[in-house]
Computed example of a mutant assay.
Amino acid sequence: MNRGWVEDVERLHQEGLIDGDDQNTLIRHVEDQRRSLQEELALIVPEYKERITRDGQSSADEWLAAKARELGERDGDKTRRVVDSLSTVENQSS
């Protein structure tokens, strides 16, 4: 995990901008996202190589770009839900 990012989250907690639960939620979310991405890449790389052989480079690149968009949108949605669930965000919207 990116140590600089963790330090930023710790600083937010120290400054009272987020509570301990929110701090843990954010750190856990980033770690889960990192692990999920590694698992996805372990599946994507072999399929990409197979698609190059079977369908050609251009087609494989198009598939890879679509897959990257899909992963980015999915991860963005998950992150948005996590951030929206933080007590600080919920309290501001009340």
Rank of each mutant, 00 (worst) to 15 (best):
M1L: 14
M1D: 08
N2D: 15
G4I: 03
V6T: 15
V6D: 09
V6N: 13
V6I: 11
D8S: 07
D8H: 12
V9D: 04
L12T: 05
L12Y: 08
E15W: 04
L17S: 06
L17R: 02
I18A: 01
D19G: 02
D19Q: 01
G20H: 04
G20M: 02
D21N: 14
D22V: 05
D22E: 15
Q23E: 15
N24F: 10
T25H: 02
T25L: 14
T25G: 07
L26E: 07
L26M: 07
R28Y: 12
R28T: 02
E31L: 09
E31C: 11
Q33S: 10
R35T: 13
S36N: 12
S36L: 10
L37S: 00
Q38M: 11
E40G: 07
A42Y: 05
A42D: 14
A42S: 15
L43M: 06
I44V: 12
P46S: 00
E47P: 03
E47M: 10
Y48H: 01
Y48A: 04
K49Y: 04
K49N: 07
R51N: 09
I52K: 09
I52C: 08
T53C: 02
T53W: 11
T53P: 00
T53D: 07
G56H: 08
S58M: 09
S58F: 01
S59R: 15
E62P: 00
W63Q: 03
L64M: 07
L64R: 03
A66Q: 11
A68P: 01
A68F: 01
A68V: 14
E70N: 10
L71Q: 04
G72W: 03
G72M: 06
G72A: 05
E73I: 06
R74H: 10
R74V: 00
D75C: 00
G76N: 11
G76R: 04
G76M: 08
G76H: 03
D77H: 13
V82C: 04
V83Y: 09
V83Q: 02
D84N: 14
D84T: 00
L86Q: 15
T88P: 01
V89A: 06
E90A: 07
